[in-house]
Amino acid sequence: MDPPRRAAGRETLPAVRRPGRLRRAAAAGAVALVAVAAGCAGGGGDEGDGGAAGDEPALAGAVRTPPLEVSDVVLPDAVTGEPVAMQAPPGELYVVYFGYTSCPDVCPTTMNDVAVALGDLPDDLADRVTVAMATVDPERDTAEVLTGYLDHFFTRHLALRTTDPAALTAATEAFGVQWEVEEHEPGEAYEVAHTAVTYVVDDTGTVVVEWPFGLDSESMAADLRTLLEERA
């Protein structure tokens, strides 16, 4: 059951090598790049505001120019199988995330931050938000697993799951999400690399803001409040 790479890793322990330090350096570089990317994204949003909607309140997350339209994206409800379009009910918002439940770090961190953000909002606002999580790991994330996962964080949620790779690819491409399942033997533990961005979709099927991984819950709450009050 132990992945072979772990056994290989164990052999690299001699004190002469410093892979850990190099890894940290690479990670620092990656974080810097992410920061740069986020900065650029913010700039894009500003340009858009200048052209079309200059007096809209600033959002902590990023807004694309032109805005991303995802109302054509449809994924099955994991429990009922009913198609769910990425378009919130009138006056409401969907918070959309592509992830998987065997993800120990990134997904629960984001889900918890979103839950805290929703908890910070008055009930009448929070009740207009539904968190939709689409699994990028339908092999392990059955309807029961995915629903149990979301129950932990949210009262209003949608569990989305398709076993059709083409349908999942179409949905993720529409959002600009990437995902990649680690090769594995049946029954072996594996990881899924995936875009860790959270998307807020309004009742027209427009992505009105997207939150990079690590955005604090206060900023999420502020964005949701702004977006919900605009739609009151």
């Binding site: 807004v63 990437q178 961005v197």
Partner: peptide
């Protein structure tokens, strides 16, 4: 990870960049 199966075309027109996050085992 195997790099062969990347899906999607991320990051068009601004946004958050769309880059993936993955976990790696660390020895040390």
């Amino acid at each position: 990870m195997d790099d062969g199966g990347a899906q999607g075309d991320a990051g068009h027109g601004g946004g958050t960049g769309g880059g993936m996050m993955e976990m790696r085992p660390v020895d040390r």
